[in-house]
Nucleic acid binder design. Structure first.
Lengths: 207, 207, 207, 207
DNA sequence: GATGAATGAGATTTCATTCAT
DNA sequence: AATGAATGAAATCTCATTCAT
């Protein structure tokens, strides 16, 4: 059996194991067994537990970011249409690959070898959002860009809201909402606010 | 030294340890050393690693929820004022006790002995937010309540956004923003949208 | 509360604990709690776990041997009557103080600090049996004593049989037999043999 | 080195360790060292201390029972010849494998995971003895069987006497008696009594 | 290319024992 | 006379990792 296939099997097994038990609690024994190979082979191909986890992270990250990117590729639509498309892609992907998503989420709090990878993923998404907000501003006829720091914060808020909603949606017992429903909910939650923001309006405590 | 004092020392040390390394990777040795006591004493007072972690969770949860509750206690202000107050309290608390907050965040993905505690905390906060949204609707003169499911989703989105922003704010290297700045950023992100929502407006993909 | 009373309470508790779990598995915490005193007091009065166990052993040993001795005290009866009385006393005692008996039995296999105590107890009983067999020989008109080695072996066999029967009797579910019934069973098992032995008769493989 | 060999080495070492110190006091470190392997390997092959001990028990039990069974296999001899053969086999086996025998004896007082195994062994041996007593009754021309309860008690007495004698014999410092000597001693002790019993004679306290 | 055999290091937990009061 | 507070040492068990084949 060719190396690539074997390696994919291992990564699949690892994602399942890490998602189920977290990085520390997942054992190389379990993963090797789940992959249907012997442990030394896992070490031969993937060096160490740390490297294995990093490989999972990289694969899941690029799968997720890729999916979102495809969702936002269409250059024709308005900025909110594109954001909506990206969100739909995001919710669809997390619903279809819950284990991969769980691994990414968990890596967030795991400290330095891994935090970098997740930070990089967030940066990619932030970049996407930044572009969209720039488009929105231009569409609104105001070419003054938002401050980089503010955009970064907004992107984090958006991603956090999306992450939380993804978990919430998948946990529903009264009928799991479709990706589109969830995306619409998030758009309702934030878009009007964003639209005002790019026009320069700000909420302030003492109105 | 009286038991209560020692117990608080241990919880403090445990929160630090768990925040730094996560539940699995934190070792009882480290925690005992950090607390300045021997390991058997930790076991004598707190039974087991699981119980110790649960005690941390409970303490940090009630500290956080208490702080937010105090922030939203003022019944006079408008709904957005109250939300703003709650968010300020939240960001202030997470900034002042970053380790406690990290422990709560991490417990989320830890499975059943612990997830319950965090779920209960989220439920408490979600309830607060739900009440505020109800007030906002009333203030806006529209007494038709939002659907329970929608409110739940929005509350989760808001809480998720706040959680994510708390992490982002604390991690800034270019000057940590004040709680008020962060809260303002989140209000900008979502309040206008919420205001419209309670009035019945909805974003839809094809406008 | 006077020291002697406290000490008896501790021994009682220790016997219960050691009987229930064995020497190693019984913990000083349990014992102190069962005795209703604090642990340092146990150490103040009884020095160490080893000493505590030894004290239990000594007390239970002298109680048991004392009971059997009383049973065989009557000098009037025939040798078999006396043996029968001793056995009755033995079975009655082990039925009434099962924990004490369990402690003695278990100590047997515990190695050097304790084996000595049990060996001494066996020696006491052997001595009793030896005297009885001497009487039986004299009653039978034959004054040639059995070899010491043979008597020792017979005493061990008798004690072993009695021990086994004591356990068997107490474990019956279809009505626990009285001490007298059990003693009669053992007499039936061995007395005729012993009677022949003292007269010089021997069983041999090739008759 | 193949697994089976290693496993036998471990069992051998464990029997030695458990015999020397008892179940609780024997440590897995000692056992592993005695076996010439590392501790993890012991756990890999035998799961846990409990399982290791159970495995010892099972092996020693079947070795002992097997030996006794072989001893009593000859169907030609009289009942006492067969009993004698069985006893010889028993004493020979316990003399040759004193550690195995010590482990079995100690397991008796160890409570539920283990007591079962020893109880089953006793039941096997009791059954053998019962059959022999039945044969003896038939040989004596009396086809009225002894009451089941009485046979059970007698078998326990015999087994107890034999167990006790085995320990006694091995502990002699003045020359260890041969298995045949020990067996003869026990036959002398009980056989005449048993012979009378099966013919209906009973000892009674007031003759 | 693949694995059965093996281990060093370290995890949680328990226990007999002692101070200081 | 009695105890709450505290610990050193050691137990069982697990895991990531590597040879030798």
């Amino acid at each position: 059996m060719p190396r690539e296939v074997r390696e994919r099997q291992m990564l699949d097994a690892a994602v399942v194991g890490f998602a189920r038990n977290g990085y520390q609690a997942a054992s190389m024994d379990e993963i090797a067994e789940e992959a249907g190979v012997s442990k030394p082979l896992v070490y031969l191909y993937l060096k160490s537990k740390e490297d294995l986890f990093t490989a999972c992270l990289r694969r899941e990250r690029s799968a997720l970011v890729g999916a979102v990117r495809v969702g936002t590729r269409e250059r024709d639509g308005s900025a909110d249409q594109q954001l909506w498309n990206g969100l739909c892609a995001f919710f669809a992907h997390t619903a279809v690959r819950p284990d991969g998503w769980a691994v990414l989420q968990r890596a967030d709090t795991l400290g330095e070898p891994f935090a970098h990878e997740v930070a990089a993923m967030r940066a990619e998404i932030t970049e996407l959002v930044t572009l969209l907000l720039g488009r929105a501003a231009r569409d609104a006829g105001c070419d003054e860009a938002l401050a980089e720091r503010e955009v970064s914060g907004l992107a984090h808020a958006l991603v956090g809201a999306a992450e939380s909603l993804a978990g919430w949606a998948n946990a529903r017992t009264d009928g799991v909402p479709s990706a589109k429903e969830t995306a619409a909910m998030l758009m309702n939650f934030c878009w009007t606010g964003l639209e005002h923001l790019v026009k320069g309006a700000r909420w302030s405590p003492h109105r």
